[in-house]
Design a protein around this nucleic acid. Structure first.
Lengths: 198, 198
DNA sequence: TAACAAACAGTCAAGACTGATTGTTAGCCG
DNA sequence: CGGCTAACAATCAGTCTTGACTGTTTGTTA
């Protein structure tokens, strides 16, 4: 019984933390970095301010946790979507481009930009960004079935990722889907050639 | 005499406004959007708070003016740098990529991201962004000596611009110059092929 | 069952930011 | 020379955000 109850408590605790972290991400998407206040997060999470402060003593702590959460979730989402996607360059580039056009990226972008001028945030975001960047690269290589030992292939994959980030940027202020699709298609063709080139 | 003095006054007024707008851009670069407070801007500009409020009654007014100023300056800077640059794709792509890696872009990015969740700012930034995007595209076409009537050329130029924006993003948190140079070189080769392809 | 710990709720004071109000100076006009 | 206006200065009140503090409920251990 003792163990069970402890489990129940731990579960609840974890649930509350999760709700807070997810509410933080939601706020980032809806209100942006400066609009993400602790009060708003608590309200959105349906958690009292006291409970919030119990779990995350400062805004920094909350954000740090949210960043980690966001990073983990991003990778998961991307991998999940990758299941069942064709291996053709168009499909793969489209997949990644669409992912970068999602709300998750908007939230990440808010953190990214804020981290530039916020040292505390930077120490959290920078290493995570590096890690996610690497993982995304690896996933792209895998999905494309690319052979990185061949000359130019590694660069082509890098171009793909930098390009989709640029496209994602253009998508922040207005719906850029149509233009994006055209560019994705065009780049996919070039990428295919680069991958197959002997 | 009357006219002269009026002129002197008008000059001073314009100078103060300019100082305020430039200080706003500086603050954006150094402190980010939420760190750009009216007080800080006034201090940086060496202008009293009263004078500031005299010229720009609200924060919104100040920012709107700064955005316009930034836009105009960006185009000028880019065009100025373009003078005397070789017409080879490597040189042109490098030029644009370096420009997007400058402080001016950091400031623009702050506004860009903030505008996503700030309707007032959005109404200012969006049209200007469209305009600058078009001008940059035109400039790139001109510098590259590209013939947009040929198939794929327009898309190749668009890819170039979206790519450099993606690269600029990666450059925000850490100095990415080395990696960027490699990608620029690689893409320039692909671009050259795309432009010359009959 | 009594002592204790963890989760949670509500209140409050300090500090920051914005914008409004009031006062001052320089130069023109009649 | 006195009134008048534009530019500028200084102060102040209201609002928002943060995090500290105190109290309450629920669960745990001896």
């Amino acid at each position: 019984m003792v163990v069970e109850v402890r489990q129940r408590q731990a579960d609840r605790s974890r649930g509350t933390r999760r709700k807070l972290m997810e509410a933080t991400v939601d706020c980032l998407v809806e209100r942006g970095w400066s609009g993400t206040t602790t009060i708003l997060v608590a309200e959105r999470a349906g958690v009292s301010r006291g409970a919030q402060l119990h779990h995350f003593r400062t805004r920094g702590e909350l954000v740090a946790a949210a960043v980690e959460h966001l990073g983990a979730e991003s990778v998961l989402v991307l991998k999940a979507r990758a299941v069942g996607v064709g291996r053709s360059p168009v499909a793969v580039v489209g997949l990644i481009a669409d992912f970068y056009a999602s709300d998750l990226f908007s939230a990440a972008l808010e953190l990214w930009v804020a981290a530039r001028t916020d040292p505390e945030l930077k120490t959290i975001v920078l290493p995570l960004q590096t890690k996610i960047g690497r993982e995304t690269h690896r996933l792209a290589v895998e999905l494309l079935g690319a052979d990185e030992t061949r000359p130019g292939v590694r660069e082509a994959v890098q171009i793909t990722l930098d390009l989709v980030r640029g496209l994602a940027l253009a998508n922040q202020l207005a719906d850029d889907r149509k233009r994006r699709a055209g560019i994705v298609r065009h780049w996919a063709t070039m990428l295919e050639a680069a991958l197959e080139e002997s």
